[in-house]
Design a protein around this nucleic acid. Structure first.
Length: 920
RNA sequence: GCGGAUGUGGCGUAAUUGGUAGCCGCGCCAGACUUAGGAUCUGGUGCCGAGAGGCGUGGGGGUUCGAGUCCCUCCAUCCGCACCA
């Protein structure tokens, strides 16, 4: 019987759907296992072969866990809010919900076609009000919470109010905004509501604040730091400028230490953890207070090198610092103002492009050195960032390269205080001794830092401090297609909607554009207000809002009274295996961890970290095909001959190239200008060159999984995607190679049918050789899956089928277990054969066969014999031979004399079962 | 600049603890079947060499009886962060 994958794959896909084969039960005696894919944003282009790589891997793992007796949760959903659908809506007027719906239908169809074993009953869509109700709910919980640093957890705001009523804001270690004045309990009780609300806003975990944002004029919205790459928006690549705006923020910075520390216990790749560590950016140092005599004031700087204070020869303020105004003397005013205006108005991109350009101006004021009392000039320069530390630094040119460059440029003195060479540049190593520094002279740097911090504290001039680079996350977007904020304004003060009124549904608007007043699109909605007439917030939430807790919702997706029922949450706990792209390392993965810790703090969920193990699948790159046009002609020369001409390479669609041979007729029909093209062939063929680059429409190298499923079937495609190489590695796609996998799958089929039409299954006892092949494969495949080495498992299947073909094995005792272990990889063909073998229930819920080591026992060992490390010949010994027997055998062997070249044998090394090395 | 990763045939890759380098597949070569082959099957295929043999895991050095694997150093490519004090 021919292997008819079309019929087979369709049959079992509908069977799985009808039987609900992959439904996960929220109550079970079995151990749980939660496998999660990063859910996709359903774009209009559909999937290309790179997208399903991770899905196939997680699917194999899920199916393997079922065979091992686990209750597996393996859900899929859609990250359905987002910019592309809205941009499309602006262009066409089509409601983003409609576009999104169509795209999701396309994605679903493609995923189902790959035989992916999802529990579709649990599908979530972030744009569904039943889902985003819980996104809004979590936001309200954050609005209603503050961070207690003493207990290191989030607490309800009512507890903070209770504290204020009793103690004012003294005796409190809370994460809060800069510049909150101290107040007493009496003062608090005497405040009106507006004043109280304004104070509380400084403490809330979701808070409204004037802040410098990344404003993208082209998209008409602000963006989070992780949505900006190289000064351009990640979506669309539009320029981004700095601007102060009133925005909602999430106080993720309060969680920086915990986000950093608990990374250590996660089973993630080193690079993923390292990216997060960099993003969180912990640095240990000290805050130091400097005094200014004229005008009389003090200000703080943050430094990681308090030990170098005696080398400080100038100070620098960020252009945005409010101190600049106060410290600029009248004679310097014009110059400073001009500089500050220019510096602030530059976009990030301009700022980055000019990193090497040293600019700055002197304010005219001097600070007082805290130990020597000497005056230190205060400058303004854009190499100091407003957002980090205190926006002011003490510059130590001898031991900081940026300060060094600045001092050289402006001719400021350089004073050395650490032993080392500063003739060519700053010496910034911490492995050295302090010099010229009063009471810390002679100490090694780390010790000097400790002593200095202690002294600063004694004198009340500073204290040791840990700083984090992680900024609070800007949470408003001035866009339409996102979750509305459940917030209304009463006299300009934001108040939460009552929980019972959730979800606050996204209203209809007449256009997906800002209003004439420049308000966000929701400003166009009729009656966008509470029943009492209070206006509702006009911004919507960013993309990461909906993806920050979706893994929790999958546990209990239809629950209408809670994000997740506590018992259900207790059963599923957390995600055991999470597979997705590395591009989410600083965005989604950090927000989701924060969101999870917050819900954990409030007791809604039982695990502090959401994703136990993370695997980042590598990118599948495109393999572009190139033809070579001879310059200024319409003649194309085959690759092997191109060196003889001056040519320009041109990308051609990979669909008209097979095994690097160009289909000339199709090429000529591709574009009008090629209709008259001429070709210089080699051996009667036109051979294309190739290039490995991103899979993208503009390179004409996109390969669609549907086309491959049509031609080879989903099972072959699944196997080939895994066969390509290690999951985490980037690797080029080469459609040619799929033939080999297709041959393998048909060879497997032929074990059952031969060349005829009848199932030839034999009930005979298997031979030793057959059992050895089978059990070798069971062992290898199991070990490979356990360490996520899917490519080597596929290769073991090939070896197994090659061997069984040579043995002409068609025995049930061999083929049935083989079918089970192959079923996670090639589920359709396995299900078909499983049923043909007489089973009436799914192979997906069969048991993974036990490996029996007895079948692999060998009676003899073939030792390679090497001489001084070079392998020369082989000798076979009985498996039990002792070292001495083996050595004697080698010494007595005919060939030994030849390779010792008449030198005496110094030593014979025998590694039992492995190797013999003769040293001479 | 800092941090992380990766370098093995023409190509994708394998070698789980330091123990036969190149499994499996593509491609290529030869043969069989065939009117034909871009189908199928069989065999071969790291490089140099007629052969004996020699060389060979980015380069150089080291440890070891033995190194793709461990150490030092340099180079290349990719990714992340980047005036973060």
């Amino acid at each position: 019987m021919e292997y008819n994958f079309r019929e087979i794959e369709q049959r079992w896909q509908s069977y799985w759907q009808q039987e609900n084969t992959f439904r996960a039960e929220n109550q079970s005696e079995k151990p749980k296992y939660y496998v999660l894919d990063m859910f996709p944003y359903p774009s209009g282009a559909g999937l290309h072969v790179g997208h399903p790589l991770g899905y196939i891997a997680s699917d194999i793992y899920s199916r393997y866990k079922w065979l091992k007796g686990f209750n597996v949760l393996h859900p899929m959903g859609f990250d359905a809010f987002g910019l592309p659908a809205e941009q499309y809506a602006i262009q066409t007027g089509q409601h983003p919900a409609l576009t999104t719906e169509e795209n999701i239908a396309q994605y679903r169809r493609q995923l189902i076609r790959l035989g992916l074993a999802y529990d579709w009953d649990r599908e979530v869509r972030t744009s569904d009000p039943k889902y985003y109700r819980w996104t809004q709910w979590a936001f309200l919980k954050m609005f209603d919470a503050w961070y207690d640093r003493a207990l290191d957890k989030a607490r309800s705001i009512t507890e903070l109010i209770a504290h204020f009523e009793q103690y004012g804001n003294g005796n409190l270690d809370a994460a809060c905004n800069e510049g909150v004045e101290p107040f007493t309990a009496e003062a608090w009780r005497g405040m009106d509501e507006t004043r109280q609300q304004l104070i509380l806003m400084n403490y809330r975990l979701a808070y409204l604040s004037d802040t410098m944002v990344n404003w993208c004029p082209a998209l008409g919205t602000v963006l989070a730091n992780d949505e900006v790459k190289d000064g351009l928006s990640e979506r669309g690549g539009h320029p981004v400028i700095r601007k102060s705006m009133k925005q909602w923020l999430l106080r993720i910075s309060a969680y920086a230490p915990r986000l950093l520390n608990s990374l250590d216990h996660l089973d993630w790749s080193d690079s993923a953890k390292e990216i997060q560590r960099n993003w969180i950016g912990r640095s240990e140092g000290a805050v130091m207070t400097f005094e200014v005599k004229e005008p009389a004031l003090t200000f703080d700087v943050f430094t990681t090198r308090p030990d170098t204070i005696f080398g400080c020869t100038f100070m620098v303020l960020a252009p945005e610092s409010p101190l600049v105004k106060q410290l600029t003397t009248s004679d310097r005013q014009q110059e400073v103002e001009a500089y500050v205006t220019e510096a602030i108005n530059r976009t990030d991109r301009e700022r980055m492009a000019e990193v090497k350009k040293i600019t700055g101006v002197f304010t005219g004021s001097y600070a007082v050195h805290p130990f020597t009392g000497e005056p230190i000039p205060i400058w303004v320069a854009d190499y100091v960032l407003a957002g980090y530390g205190t926006g002011a630094i003490m510059a130590v040119p001898a031991h900081d390269s940026r300060d060094y460059a600045f001092a050289k440029h402006f001719n400021i003195p350089i004073k050395q205080v650490i032993e080392g060479d500063i003739s060519e540049g700053a010496f910034d190593s911490k492995e050295a001794l302090v010099i010229n520094s009063d009471f810390i002279t002679g100490l090694p740097v780390p010790e000097a830092i400790r002593v200095m911090n202690q002294r600063l504290e004694e004198l009340g001039k500073g204290y040791g401090k840990v700083n984090y680079r992680l900024r609070d996350a800007i949470f408003s977007r001035q866009r339409y297609w996102g979750e509305p904020f459940p917030i209304y304004f009463k006299e300009g003060i934001p108040y939460p909607l009552p929980e019972e009124q959730l979800p606050l549904e996204l209203p209809e608007v007449d256009a997906y554009l800002p209003t004439e007043k420049g308000e966000p699109p929701l400003g166009r909605a009729a009656n966008w207000q509470t029943p009492e007439g209070y206006p509702l917030e006009l911004s919507t939430m960013p993309g990461f809002a909906g993806s920050s807790a979706y893994y929790l919702r999958y546990m209990d997706p239809h629950n209408e009274t809670a994000l997740v029922n506590p018992e259900v949450n207790h059963y599923w706990q957390d995600v055991d295996l999470y597979i997705g792209g590395m591009e989410h390392a600083t965005g989604h993965l950090i927000y989701a961890r924060f969101w999870n810790k917050f819900l954990f703090d409030l007791g809604y969920i039982c695990k502090e970290e959401p994703f136990k193990k993370l695997i980042n699948q590598g990118m599948i790159q495109g393999r572009s095909s190139l033809v070579y046009r001879i310059n200024n002609t319409n003649t194309f020369v085959s690759k092997g001959l191109k060196e003889q001409y001056q040519t320009t390479p041109i990308h051609v669609d990979v669909a008209m190239v097979d095994n690097d041979h160009l289909d000339i007729d199709r090429f000529m029909a591709w574009r009008p200008e090629y209709a008259t093209a001429e070709f210089i062939l080699e051996n009667g063929q036109y051979l294309c060159g190739y290039e490995i680059e991103k899979m993208s429409k503009r390179f004409y190298n996109v390969v669609n999984p549907d086309d491959l499923a049509d031609r080879y079937g989903a099972d072959t495609l699944r196997l080939y995607e895994m066969f390509l190489g290690p999951l985490e590695q980037h690797k080029p796609w080469d459609t040619n190679g799929i033939e080999g996998v297709y041959r393998f799958i048909r060879k497997f089929w032929k074990l059952f049918f031969g060349n005829g039409d009848q199932l030839l299954l034999s009930e005979e006892e298997p031979t030793e050789a057959e059992l050895k092949t089978l059990h070798k494969t069971i062992k290898k495949v199991q070990e490979d899956i356990e360490r996520f080495s899917f490519n080597t498992a596929v290769s073991s299947f090939m070896i197994c089928v090659n061997e069984l073909s040579d043995l002409k094995c068609n025995k049930r005792a061999i083929l049935e277990p083989l079918t089970i272990i192959l079923s996670p990889y090639a589920p359709h063909i396995a299900e078909e054969l499983w049923h043909l073998m007489g089973h009436t229930t799914t192979v997906a819920k069969a048991s993974f066969p036990e490996f029996n080591p007895e079948y692999l026992v060998e009676n003899t060992v073939e030792y390679p014999v090497s001489f001084n490390g070079k392998t020369r010949f082989k000798i076979t010994f009985p498996a039990g031979a002792s070292k001495e027997e083996v050595e004697a055998g080698v010494r007595a062997h005919d060939l030994t004399e030849k390779y010792t070249a008449e030198k005496p044998i110094k030593k014979v090394i025998v590694v039992p079962g492995r190797i013999i090395n003769v040293v001479c």
